[in-house]
């Protein structure tokens, strides 16, 4: 059991969980939309790391499981496009708020 506890799966999986928890806390704590976009991205990183730990766990013949790896690569690219869209919308939101304030 001690050997199990020192596996990379548990270490990186637990770090992934911790990042998800920290991301959730930050997401709800901040009121500004930019900080929420950052928090959302950091949270996504935690989810990816969790999947990566599972890929490592399922390693077969010297290489990690390709299915979670493919999912994560897809996820990284989708998350950058979602971030870009979120930033565009946030910027428009700010322009609207300024326009109303003036």
């Amino acid at each position: 059991m001690i050997a199990e506890l020192s596996s990379p799966f548990l270490l990186y999986g637990a770090v992934g969980c911790l990042l998800i928890g920290m991301g959730l806390y930050s997401l709800a704590l901040h009121t500004h939309v930019y900080r929420r976009i950052l928090a959302w991205n950091a949270l996504g990183g935690g989810v990816f790391l969790f999947l990566g730990a599972i890929a490592k766990r399922n390693a077969y013949g010297g290489s990690s499981d390709p299915l979670p790896q493919a999912l994560v690569i897809t996820g990284i690219v989708v998350s950058v496009s979602a971030t870009a869209l979120a930033l565009a919308i946030a910027r428009r939101l700010q322009t609207e708020e300024r326009g109303n304030g003036a």
């Binding site: 990379p8 990186y12 990566g52 730990a53 890929a55 490592k56 990690s64 790896q69 994560v72 690569i73």
Partner: peptide, 8 residues
Amino acid sequence: VQLDAIDV
């Protein structure tokens, strides 16, 4: 890299 996922 530590998780043997070079592509990622």
